[in-house]
Amino acid sequence: MLQKISELINSSRSILIASHSSPDGDAISSTLALYNALKKIGKEVVAYNRDEVPGDLRFLPGSDALTRELPPGCSFDLGLVLDAGELRRAGTELRDRCARLVNIDHHPHSENFGEINYVDVKASATGILIYRLLNELGYAIDYPVALCIYTAILSDTGSFRYSNADPESFEVAGKLVAMGVDPWQVASGLYESQEEVRLKLLGLALQTLEVSPCGRFAALTVTGEMLAATGATAEHTDRFINYPRSIEGVEVAVFFRQVDAGQFKVGFRSKGHVDVGSLAREFGGGGHHNAAGALLKGTAAAIRRQVFERLGELLSNP
């Protein structure tokens, strides 16, 4: 399959690289790794996402080249959609703009929307798949690409703390460090460059902390009023879910973020016992065993009650 994708890349002149909206570290880093590499070998490449690059990822090479809008009538020989799970998360209009589509992903239940669907659910990050693809292309990985791939792996393994941090993750990361990637530079960019408004928002969010009576799940909530009061944006809520997840005894963490009147994005994180990917699909969303999300309509109270009741059922057995 890697060979087929490589052949498509080699035979294409114009290439679009896209990832899912509300992009995380893996989505953006994988996009930019492939963008930098294909641009260097002479392809006409556009990196696209419907949302902006999060502030803590703007240190990555090529981040200023990512576009949120495609010109009317613009088309491509090939579209490479990364880390999306479903085409709608990147944009269903991409099908009409690309003569061929390739889906590169590591999400379970990833939609087969491409002519080629390279999906490896055992891979710790889509960045790992990009590393494999570039090796298949014969690309001599340089520093900008190495930095992006390392960041993708670090992001999706929770700094190598999550259960998906497998031997391949450490092996590839080690090779990238040997190429010159500075782990502190990446950690500093991701975790040590917070804006003041983010901490103000976090202070408000922590006041909403709810821990279930059984102590096995916990949640935080961010409302539109909180965002307005602090001047923060949705991107400032990245990793807020790790706070309830870090509580001793908590197996599932939930993060409710208001996206509109009567609409909340719900994120789930599991420590392994509960398959939150399956839970999210019950609510019309998707994701991994340990990380998933969904978009729910209703009042904050009604949505919390709905989610908490289902989690109570799932965690009712000791």
Results as ranks from 00 to 15, higher is better:
residue 202 L to H: 00
residue 211 V to R: 09
residue 208 T to P: 06
residue 228 A to G: 05
residue 246 S to H: 10
residue 192 E to N: 14
residue 243 Y to K: 11
residue 211 V to D: 00
residue 225 E to L: 04
residue 201 L to E: 00
residue 261 A to H: 12
residue 214 C to Y: 02
residue 202 L to F: 08
residue 226 M to V: 03
residue 200 K to G: 00
residue 238 D to L: 10
residue 198 R to H: 03
residue 227 L to F: 10
residue 238 D to S: 10
residue 254 V to P: 05
residue 224 G to R: 00
residue 232 A to M: 06
residue 263 Q to N: 11
residue 230 T to Q: 00
residue 205 A to V: 05
residue 260 D to N: 14
residue 230 T to E: 00
residue 240 F to N: 06
residue 225 E to Q: 10
residue 201 L to M: 06
residue 191 Y to N: 08
residue 261 A to W: 11
residue 249 G to E: 07
residue 263 Q to G: 12
residue 204 L to C: 05
residue 196 E to G: 02
residue 217 F to Y: 12
residue 219 A to C: 12
residue 191 Y to A: 04
residue 257 R to N: 10
residue 248 E to S: 14
residue 182 D to C: 13
residue 245 R to A: 13
residue 255 F to Y: 14
residue 183 P to L: 09
residue 204 L to T: 01
residue 216 R to D: 03
residue 252 V to N: 10
residue 193 S to A: 15
residue 223 T to I: 03
residue 197 V to D: 04
residue 220 L to I: 06
residue 184 W to T: 14
residue 227 L to V: 02
residue 208 T to G: 06
residue 223 T to Y: 01
residue 253 A to M: 11
residue 255 F to Q: 11
residue 261 A to K: 14
residue 240 F to Y: 12
residue 189 G to C: 03
residue 222 V to F: 05
residue 220 L to T: 07
residue 196 E to N: 15
residue 222 V to K: 02
residue 254 V to T: 09
residue 243 Y to C: 10
residue 259 V to F: 07
residue 191 Y to G: 03
residue 248 E to F: 14
residue 260 D to L: 14
residue 239 R to I: 07
residue 228 A to Q: 10
residue 246 S to W: 09
residue 263 Q to S: 14
residue 225 E to I: 00
residue 196 E to H: 15
residue 249 G to F: 10
residue 208 T to R: 11
residue 260 D to M: 13
residue 194 Q to R: 12
residue 218 A to E: 07
residue 262 G to E: 15
residue 255 F to R: 09
residue 244 P to M: 10
residue 190 L to T: 00
residue 247 I to P: 10
residue 210 E to R: 15
residue 186 V to H: 02
residue 253 A to E: 13
residue 191 Y to H: 14
residue 254 V to H: 08
residue 235 E to G: 01
residue 208 T to A: 04
residue 252 V to D: 10
residue 202 L to R: 01
residue 213 P to R: 06
residue 188 S to C: 12
residue 195 E to C: 02
residue 190 L to C: 04
residue 198 R to E: 09
residue 241 I to T: 04
residue 186 V to F: 07
residue 200 K to E: 09
residue 181 V to H: 04
residue 205 A to W: 04
residue 227 L to I: 07
residue 248 E to P: 09
